[in-house]
Nucleic acid binder design. Structure first.
Lengths: 154, 154
DNA sequence: CATCCACCTTGCCACCATGGCAAGGTCAAG
DNA sequence: CTTGACCTTGCCATGGTGGCAAGGTGGATG
């Protein structure tokens, strides 16, 4: 096993320490999100504490739903001592808007479907307003209320 | 152009009539969601009104966020005259739960990020609570409140 | 009839982020 | 030296959609 006091770790240890899978660490390297680390004579990747810190940063950003390209920008801002915080904030708020839009789309779908389900007996009989709605020839009965849902989704 | 009174159409017309792209119609056929249609002597796929109806059904289900495999089940239930509506309802409500879970995850991310952004001056100075949080060595300051957000996401 | 354009056919690649598997090299402990 | 845990690279799959390419069809127009 690894000696916890060591400052240089293999990819597996870096993965455990950062919460990013070894798989993804290699991937992030490949797509240029992180710099290629030093290599041991064996060819093993070698990560230092700073590298792990960066990976942890990425992990957190991913947990907040940032796509990789935006994480790249966040990393650049992080490393830029002269960044204007306004830039970070703008990036964050743009992402918030995206998250909200996606959430709203999902909720619109949920609401529509829940409403349809509310009209369905849910017994042994075959009559089903849910299927009836899906089978609508165009756009009648039980209109998909609220603001445009499906289109903005996905 | 096509004579609108024709009952048999090429894939492009079927696409326009159903709201499903020609691209996706072929895809749905390939993955077995729909049966291979008749072919003209030329090899062109030929779709009847019933086929278009089915495609429209699929389109609606997609708009409600159903994944293809669940749409397959919905189609089977639709065609089954002896279906118990309870089955349809259960499928729908299971999907509603999934939609709600995803929406909740997105909202949790949004809320966290919005809160962080709220603490950020957003001016020319480099100090930024957003980056500070992402760079947290572990799990201190401004705890990611609420119920576990990131983990359940995506 | 020749030409043209819009349409159709199949097939492969890309996205995004992640996981799985395979075949082989490395290292430390027993 | 063997074993087992780890590392390496590379390819394939996911889900749903789009794009492009190379070639065949069909109908309208000159």
């Amino acid at each position: 096993m690894a000696r916890s006091s060591e400052t240089s770790m293999n990819i597996g240890e870096a993965a455990r320490a950062s919460g990013v899978s070894a798989r993804m660490i290699r991937h992030y390297e490949q797509v240029g999100l992180i710099a290629p680390p030093a290599r041991a004579a064996s060819g093993y990747r070698s990560y230092g504490p700073q590298d792990v810190h960066t990976l942890h940063f990425i992990r957190r950003a991913r947990d907040l739903g940032f796509p990789l390209d935006e994480i790249g920008r966040l990393l650049a801002l992080w490393h830029d001592r002269n960044r204007p915080s306004a830039e970070v904030k703008a990036l964050a708020l743009r992402h918030v808007a995206e998250l909200d839009a996606k959430a709203a789309a999902l909720q619109a779908m949920s609401a529509t479907l829940r409403r349809l389900a509310g009209h369905c007996h849910g017994d042994d009989r075959p009559d089903c307003p849910i299927l009836d709605d899906l089978a609508q020839p165009a756009d009648q009965a039980l209109p998909r209320h609220g603001t445009s849902a499906g289109t903005a989704a996905r």
